[in-house]
């Protein structure tokens, strides 16, 4: 590499840091949505780089479905302690208890969709004017048209046909009272970029991403983990499998991959030879062709 030319990871990093700083400069009360998954972990790492030696000038917010893996809660709490982060937890269980949302019924029920209400309520309660998230444009086709700075109306809704043009590195975060923004600093990263960056920067991630033994069953061709809150049909046989997770979401809708990859190098090899996208294992996207677009319009991440 030429001395005055950046590698793709360094250029992506520079772009994302610029966007995170721009959010802090343009908004009064931003927040970083933190799921404990690799993308939000990378966002948090970039935020620490952006403001060092000062602390990250915004809190993390976890929209907790209550249906996450134990490993994830443990990881989240350790990260908060180690990096001196401020953490806000918004609970989907509380939204259910308050009667704001109704739990889905049936074997494929998931709290994934309910998160939207909890998220919008929390944004309003804490008066956040910009919620940053770790969504990437390569994840899903509706995301490919998302802006870095995404304008939301009073109801938190996204109007994909009426987005502001976004040119050069000039971001327009102007809004009227009551409106807010979503900002996506790692829009231009791919799954592979994330893994390479985690390796390059030696970033800690939850053990769920590495190969381990777990009680699992198979539904619609997807390997699902057996937890205390997943319902299984009688014919669904529970067996010990050697698995890891490519994405980490709500345990009720996140599929595992049969894998022996127990370190980052092996994961990168596995991802580069994989013929299936990471969301291929997400039951929530399989509901319909426009599932993601519909959830995003309502105010999903």
């Amino acid at each position: 590499m030429n001395r005055y030319h950046l590698t793709h990871l360094k250029e992506l990093e520079a772009e994302s840091i610029f966007i995170i700083r721009e959010v802090v400069a343009q908004f009064e009360n931003p927040v970083l949505l933190f799921s404990g998954g690799k993308d939000s972990i990378v966002c948090h790492h970039l935020a620490r780089k952006a403001f060092y030696p000062a602390n990250v000038p915004f809190p993390l917010m976890h929209i907790d479905t209550g249906h996450n893996f134990e490993e994830l809660y443990k990881f989240r709490d350790e990260l908060v302690k180690e990096t001196n982060a401020r953490l806000i937890i918004a609970s989907v269980q509380k939204s259910i208890d308050d009667g704001k949302v109704k739990e889905e019924k049936g074997i494929n029920s998931s709290r994934n969709k309910l998160q939207t209400t909890t998220l919008l309520d929390a944004i309003e309660h804490h008066q956040f004017d910009c919620a940053m998230g770790g969504a990437r444009r390569d994840e899903e086709k509706a995301r490919a048209k998302e802006r870095f700075f995404s304008h939301r109306d009073d109801f938190g809704q996204w109007d994909p046909k009426n987005q502001r043009p976004e040119l050069w590195n000039l971001f327009n975060g102007k809004k009227s009272f009551g409106e807010h923004f979503r900002a996506f600093p790692i829009s231009n990263w791919t799954e592979m970029d994330i893994w390479q960056y985690i390796l390059q920067e030696k970033i800690k991630i939850p053990s769920l991403y590495f190969s381990h033994q777990r009680d699992c069953f198979i539904r619609n061709g997807v390997v699902m983990a057996k937890t205390s809150f997943t319902l299984t049909k009688p014919e669904e046989e529970i067996t010990k499998m050697q698995v890891r997770f490519r994405t980490i979401g709500d345990a009720t809708c996140t599929g595992a991959t049969i894998s022996n990859a127990d370190n980052l190098e092996k994961i990168i090899d596995e991802v580069s030879s994989s013929r299936i996208t990471e969301r291929g294992g997400r039951a929530d996207d399989k509901r319909s062709e426009a599932a993601m677009e519909d959830r995003k319009k309502e105010g999903y991440f």
Binding site: K141, A144, K145, P160, K161, S187, M192, E289, E293
Partner: peptide, 27 residues
């Protein structure tokens, strides 16, 4: 490359869409 419902229904592209690919040399 057609990401939005209206685009698929009408067979047109409405907005700038970003695509990603990489070779061993470049992203």
């Amino acid at each position: 490359t057609d990401g939005l419902r209206a685009e698929r229904e009408q067979g047109i592209t409405i907005d700038v869409a970003y695509r990603y690919f990489a070779t061993p040399k470049r992203k």
